[in-house]
Amino acid sequence: MAQVTQPQPGPEAEEVRLGIAIRAYRTMRRMTLRSLAAEAGASPSFISQLEHGRTSVSVGMLRRIAGALGITVADLFAPGASVGHRVVRHADRPELPAGPGTRKYLITPRPLQNLEIYGGEFDPGASTGDEPYAHGDAQEIFMVLRGRIVLCLGPAESAACHELAAGDTSEYRTSTPHRMVNEGSEPAEVLWIISPPTRTGA
């Protein structure tokens, strides 16, 4: 039996798929054409043509569009990018830069909409850094899943520190300087839940 060769998608098909992905992510983010265009530095008519697969786009512009959507360029070309219901497997969670002895993962699938959730692991003695940090001005809930964490809120010289055990939570604004440290002898696992997303992480 002769083998049937499937036709390879041409540039037009790629542009159509890219447009569908951009429109799907924009809809998930509840962004208008105008708001996406403003954040990406493009015109609404260009974004409209791009979403309908009627024009090509430079790498630089594509990066700006992806950034405005809260995703990466690779996300736009991933299989199933236009699927609304998404699953993030434990092994596939994106790992974010963190300090020595600390691991941080993005749990919520992109694009981030109303909230973002990060998971973290602290080895004994590990912390988020020597100095408290802040990001944006959103509501943040910090929860200890395993182990014990000391959470300090406020500037370093006047911070209020709380020891949290598994199941304990704390709520504060992301604009409040905060620092976490594992002063125990066992690894600790935590969650950061932030609403709305601050785009700069937990």
Score class of each variant (00 low, 15 high):
195 S>H: 01
50 L>D: 02
93 R>M: 12
197 P>D: 13
37 A>Q: 00
110 R>L: 08
11 P>A: 11
38 A>F: 12
75 D>R: 11
101 G>A: 10
5 T>E: 14
114 N>H: 09
65 I>L: 00
16 V>D: 12
19 G>K: 09
20 I>E: 06
121 E>M: 13
156 A>P: 02
144 V>K: 03
148 R>E: 14
103 R>H: 09
64 R>T: 10
179 R>D: 06
89 R>F: 09
161 C>Q: 07
127 S>H: 03
172 Y>H: 14
28 M>C: 00
175 S>W: 03
101 G>F: 15
146 R>A: 15
121 E>A: 10
105 Y>L: 00
181 V>L: 11
138 A>T: 13
63 R>F: 10
75 D>W: 13
143 M>V: 03
95 E>C: 03
182 N>C: 08
32 T>G: 05
3 Q>S: 13
47 I>W: 00
139 Q>D: 14
202 A>S: 13
90 H>T: 15
150 V>F: 08
94 P>M: 02
79 P>G: 07
133 Y>F: 15
56 S>H: 11
71 I>D: 07
53 G>L: 01
202 A>Q: 05
123 D>V: 00
32 T>C: 07
43 S>L: 06
125 G>C: 08
83 V>D: 14
151 L>H: 08
63 R>S: 09
152 C>G: 15
141 I>V: 15
35 S>R: 14
171 E>Y: 08
59 V>F: 15
93 R>E: 06
134 A>S: 11
173 R>T: 13
147 G>F: 05
17 R>W: 07
160 A>L: 06
21 A>S: 06
99 G>Y: 05
169 T>Q: 00
145 L>S: 03
135 H>S: 03
33 L>K: 01
183 E>V: 01
65 I>C: 01
165 A>K: 02
32 T>S: 08
22 I>P: 03
127 S>F: 04
33 L>C: 04
120 G>D: 15
59 V>W: 11
16 V>L: 15
38 A>K: 10
47 I>V: 12
86 R>D: 13
161 C>R: 09
198 T>E: 08
158 S>H: 12
4 V>C: 06
19 G>V: 11
144 V>R: 03
53 G>P: 00
158 S>M: 02
104 K>H: 04
137 D>N: 12
38 A>Y: 07
162 H>W: 13
80 G>W: 03
84 G>H: 12
11 P>N: 10
82 S>A: 15
133 Y>C: 13
41 G>V: 00
42 A>W: 13
32 T>E: 05
113 Q>H: 05
55 T>Y: 04
107 I>A: 04
7 P>R: 04
168 D>M: 09
136 G>S: 02
134 A>K: 07
90 H>P: 14
152 C>I: 14
30 R>F: 13
153 L>M: 12
27 T>A: 11
51 E>C: 01
14 E>S: 12
78 A>R: 12
89 R>S: 07
102 T>W: 05
157 E>M: 07
202 A>D: 02
118 Y>E: 10
199 R>C: 05
127 S>E: 04
173 R>Q: 13
22 I>H: 04
135 H>N: 03
179 R>E: 02
34 R>F: 05
68 A>F: 05
110 R>G: 09
146 R>G: 10
107 I>V: 05
